[in-house]
C-alpha cells in the first residue's frame, strides 16, 4: 500500500515541522490575529526545520515561530509543541493546566501524550510518522479542527 515513507534522507523533525504546519492548516482559531504564533516549549528538537515555517501564510496569518522555556510565555501562542523531558504525566498536566483556556493547539511527540491531555500526539508507527488526537481536549477549547484530521489520526480519544 503506497504511503508516506519515513525515508532515511528526510530528517524526522523536518517531517514533524511540516506536520505541525499542516495541523495549523486544518485548524481554526477563534481570534482574528494576523499572526500565527507557533511556540516550541522546552528543548528545541526542530532546529532550522522550524525556522523554515517562519513567514509562511495560512489564511492571511503569518507564522511566527517562538521558542521559550517559560510556560507563562506560551499563553500568547496559537500552537505549542510541548517538549517536556522527562515525558511524565504530571509534568504535562501541570503545563497544560497553566495554559488552559488560551485556545492553544497543544502538540507533543512523547508516548501516550494524548492520554495526558495533549491535543495531538505525534507517533512513529511502522516506520512512519502519524498522529493521535485527544478530541475531548480539543472540544473543551474553542478550537475547531477539520474532521479530515480526525480521520487521518491513528487514534482518537
Amino acid at each position: 500500500m503506497p504511503t508516506l515513507s519515513f525515508a532515511s534522507d528526510v530528517p524526522e523533525y523536518k517531517i514533524k515541522a511540516s506536520f505541525i504546519y499542516n495541523f495549523a492548516r486544518f485548524t481554526q482559531w477563534p481570534d482574528d490575529n494576523n499572526e500565527l504564533r507557533i511556540c516550541i516549549f522546552g528543548k528545541d528538537p526542530f532546529g532550522f526545520h522550524a525556522d523554515d515555517l517562519n513567514g509562511k501564510k495560512i489564511n492571511n496569518k503569518t507564522i511566527k515561530v517562538v521558542r521559550t522555556r517559560l510556560i507563562d510565555e506560551v499563553k500568547s501562542c496559537n500552537i505549542v509543541f510541548l517538549n517536556i523531558i522527562p515525558p511524565e504525566r504530571h509534568l504535562f498536566e501541570r503545563a497544560l493546566n497553566k495554559i488552559k483556556g488560551g485556545n492553544i493547539l497543544t502538540i507533543a511527540d512523547a508516548d501516550n501524550v494524548v492520554s495526558f491531555g495533549v491535543m495531538i500526539g505525534l507517533i512513529i508507527e511502522d516506520n512512519k510518522i502519524g498522529f493521535k488526537i485527544n478530541n475531548t481536549a480539543i472540544q473543551a477549547s474553542d478550537l475547531k479542527i477539520s474532521s479530515q484530521l480526525l480521520s487521518l489520526a491513528k487514534e482518537v480519544i
Binding site: M1, L4, N22, F26, Q148, L149, S151, L152
Partner: peptide
C-alpha cells in the same frame, strides 16, 4: 475534499481509507 488532508499529509493509507 475529504482527501485534502491525506494529500496534504501525504498519507496514502488515509487517502485510501477515505
Amino acid at each position: 475534499r475529504n482527501t485534502t488532508a491525506a494529500l496534504v499529509f501525504n498519507d496514502r493509507d488515509g487517502a485510501e481509507k477515505v
